[in-house]
Amino acid sequence: MVYLQLFLSFLKVGMFSIGGGYAAMPLIQSEVVSGHGWLSMGEFTDLITIAEMTPGPIAVNSATFVGIRIAGVPGAVAATFGCIFPSCIIVSLLAFIYYKYKNMSALQGILQSLRPAVVALIAGAGISLLRTVAVGEEALLPENVNWLGIVLFAAAFFVLRKWKWNPILVMFLCGIVNLGIHVISGAV
């Protein structure tokens, strides 16, 4: 029952990703790549790249993308519904509590220690993506390393940190430089 599996997988993503944006990424990776093997690490990296370029939350983008690849449009609907369903219930409950008591300090206590853990999880997912850029699906050996990818990563990281360049622009530049170098060197 693939629709149910998609629904349940993205239900977990929706239920346990707290803090928005990239917080969903390690969960999606754990469900979609390590858990069900629906995407390879390379496809997952493409998905994150696409999600970054298009509007909308990463979780919704991923649910649609994975759902369609696995089970067509109904799969996309099942996965997307799964990822928003926990929000609809939990946020509605919290809204009810908020309007009744106007007090959120208990919630803030838990969130305080959740935040560093979420940062660590995003770092973990980021590092496995970096590994994919460096050696693809191969073993981590010097002869497998894509040095141009590493240089692009380092340059992009530098301009983002130091000069706060626009992330979408930086991504496009990395793509164009990679394509340009391969075309000029006659690799294509």
Partner: peptide
């Protein structure tokens, strides 16, 4: 061509993510 473009962009997206991690951390 698209594959090479995407591949380069992957390096960029990892930089974007680790930049966010650096800031949050």
């Amino acid at each position: 061509y698209v594959a090479l473009l995407l591949k380069g962009m992957q390096a960029g997206v990892v930089a974007v993510i680790l930049d966010v991690v650096w800031g949050l951390g």
